[in-house]
Write a protein that binds this DNA or RNA. Structure first.
Ligand SMILES: [Mn+2]
Ligand SMILES: [Mn+2]
Ligand SMILES: [Mn+2]
Ligand SMILES: [Mn+2]
Lengths: 219, 219
DNA sequence: TTATATTTTTAGACTAATCTAAAAATATAA
DNA sequence: TTATATTTTTAGATTAGTCTAAAAATATAA
């Protein structure tokens, strides 16, 4: 049974929520993510359960079945491949790609996905540092930490962002921070958990709202 | 007002019909093209007329307004650009691209269209020889004729196809006919209008059903 | 020019996805 | 452990797009 665009968006939302907050996902959490009312979500959960894409227990919540998880990952794979295409081939900047990828991820053609992947040289990460699932749905996760958990004096490499809104990405651009940028932790302020970060030669003060949205790895 | 995918498909259908059969298009002609019942078409014509995308007179037919024509051409432009992308960059063959382009043509992002066009080197024709409208909606039409109207003894170049179904394109592949192939008219059979065509060193007999679906130009 | 055939529209119903308002279930707190 | 708050579901509507069946308009043919 073919999935509709809307169903795919629900599955993706549920996948992302369960990844952060655990397997069973609440109606309200989904409603917030897909920007719909809880009553609409209830209807959709029944439909997705009928299609064996998730298990749903009234008043308890929903959890993706293997079939549902596979479907969600396929959409995410396409989303991230298209983002790479837009940045690498079409001169989009990393803050412009999400909206378009949100549309392109729903194009149905296994050959297209396969050939796009090959054309891009089988990229491992999207422009925001998120891993690209392979054709079998396997996601290679590297051990990254949040900048907020970094230690003073050490040097790190930026490997990803959590918030990939245009506003946040433009903030990073302004301070010349991108995937691969070296960051040195100069100081941590105990009072508000803000940090002083040295990028190239400049030192920037970053609030907790910033440092909890940047992924880094050591060295 | 944003157009839906369905509206765009109707506009495209009406554009193509009016291009062949004249400005005013009948409900039944549209119904056949979009594979829907006449009653559904009537409903849609009312909606498109409300949106000023076409003029509609009950029982008389519909004709695109300038706004509707522009919208249709933009979809056709995207369709053909994507077809070029699939063939030139992703190793699709010319008989595999239409279905996918049918989906991709509805992606809404002016920047995407613009950058894709540039990435492809501003192509003038799609893989089936159809002209690609420019960003302003201008379509450069070259003077091409049907193979069925060719003269015996003359040499022509294949510049396009009318039927771009997979079956027909595979027939052409089998006989090594593509855009740019030289064709020599050896003989015309008056009885059934079939033709003997020399391609490279081989001579092939083609029925009228074939020769009325191939566009050529002299030389 | 009247009868018949064809085309087109209307009427009413269906599905997918959504909403608001009210009811029911569950969680929390006195 | 009973009352209150929160979450979730149900009931009933709405919109887009579609359908079938019937009615109305137009075209064709005797
Ligand atoms: Mn994205
Ligand atoms: Mn999406
Ligand atoms: Mn096509
Ligand atoms: Mn289409």
């Amino acid at each position: 049974m073919a999935t509709t665009l809307t169903e795919e968006n629900y599955l993706k939302a549920i996948y992302h929520i369960s990844h952060t907050y655990g397997d069973v996902v609440s109606t309200n959490a989904i409603a917030e993510k897909v920007d719909a009312k809880a009553s609409s979500v209830t209807d959709m959960l029944k439909k997705l359960a009928d299609k064996q894409l998730l298990d749903y227990i009234k008043y308890k919540g929903a959890s993706l079945t293997e079939k549902g998880r596979k479907t969600a990952i396929d959409i995410i794979r396409k989303h991230r491949l298209w983002e790479v295409f837009l940045v690498e081939k079409l001169k989009f900047s990393w803050d412009e790609v999400h909206e378009v990828a949100e549309q392109l991820e729903h194009i149905k053609s296994p050959k297209l996905t396969k050939e796009l992947d090959a054309f891009l040289g089988f990229p491992k990460h999207d422009p925001h540092g998120d891993p690209i699932p392979n054709a079998d749905g396997y996601i290679h996760r590297t051990n990254k930490i949040m900048l907020s958990h970094a230690e003073v004096g050490k040097t790190y490499t930026c490997v990803g962002v959590i918030d990939s809104s245009s506003e946040f990405l433009k903030y990073l651009d302004k301070h010349h921070i991108g995937i691969g940028t070296k960051l040195v932790v100069v100081e941590k302020e105990a009072f508000d958990q803000s940090m002083l970060i040295k990028i190239a030669s400049k030192t920037v003060a970053m609030s907790k709202a910033i440092t909890t949205n940047i992924y880094i790895k050591e060295q």
